[in-house]
Amino acid sequence: MPKASSTLAALRSLVAAWNPPDRRACEGVPTGVPAIDSALGGGLPGGQLTELVVAPGSGGQLTLVQLFETTRSARQRVALIDATDAFAPEVVAADLLRHLVWARCHNTEEAFKVADVLVRDGNYAAVVLDLRDAPGSALNRIPKTTWHRLHRITERQPAAVLVLSRYGLVPAVRWRLELPSRFRLSEQRRPRLELITALHAEALRGTFTEEMAG
């Protein structure tokens, strides 16, 4: 009968074989939002999906623009897959978008087709799949196998994949954060950087401390 230690070692090697070897080696991509970066232990993890659940007015678009600014400073490429074609480029200085590839989708189905292509690409530091305001009926029709496929594709690539949603959508996601706070109209005169610093992120699934312990 095999010893318990050898069985455990075999189990570990099996788990290691299942996990892609470069999974933890992929560098994170800082979003520039302190609350999110600290919750994720430095930034969006490369080779993994991260879901950010945001209600309207709670800073989702602010986070997106800050991610663009941070990656622009680092001269990394970013892809935005915009399922509802809602991004407004005029809110950002023109120079801050020169690293961005924006895919303006007509519907959710197209967004997933585009994600399937761009996540595989390998030239992007981050790929953002923005599913906010997509019709619930379309989102509910997404089969789990599609998410599973996206997970598997992401694991093989260095890019960090951020899914923006209105409610928890992504099954088996390692990191799901929520921005619970909401801005008031009276705060719209504050510098954007102050608003970003004031953002609060709650981990709905996975925390950096759990990850470290694991």
Binding site: P56, G57, G59, G60, Q61, L62, L64, V65, R72, S73, R75, Q76, R77, D85, A86, F87, A88, P89, E90, V91, V92, A93, D95, L96, R98, H99, V101, W102, R104, R132, F183, E187, Q188, R189, R190, P191, R192, L193, L195
Partner: peptide, 29 residues
């Protein structure tokens, strides 16, 4: 008002920061 152009071959160095930092939230159209 904007156009979508062919992405650049390489990402150039960012220009100087804006003189007046932006304020408030961001419009989602």
């Amino acid at each position: 008002s904007f156009t979508l152009e062919r992405p650049a071959e390489s990402v150039p160095a960012p220009g100087p920061a804006a003189v007046h930092p932006p304020q408030g939230g961001v419009l989602r159209r």
